[in-house]
Amino acid sequence: MSSADDITERVRGVMADLFQVDRAAVGLESSRETIPDWDSANHLTLVLALEEDFGVTFDVGEIETMLSLQDIVAVLLGKT
């Protein structure tokens, strides 16, 4: 579909949108520890928003590993 950089930027956009933070504040290492709003309910909201945005479906195993921007991009790369 597209390069790792493109995917990273798109995910960054979705995350910034949902956690209401600046795009610049979302780094590759950003995770549930560093973003206060990233709780378990918001994790699902994020994952489902990504599904809609990328037109993919994650299985529960994947959902549970998507714990940082880097991890999310890795899962998405595996699907494209």
Partner: peptide, 11 residues
């Protein structure tokens, strides 16, 4: 009407 917009308006 995506999740980001809804979150934005709600906040």
């Amino acid at each position: 009407s995506g999740a980001g917009t809804l979150r934005f308006l709600s906040r």
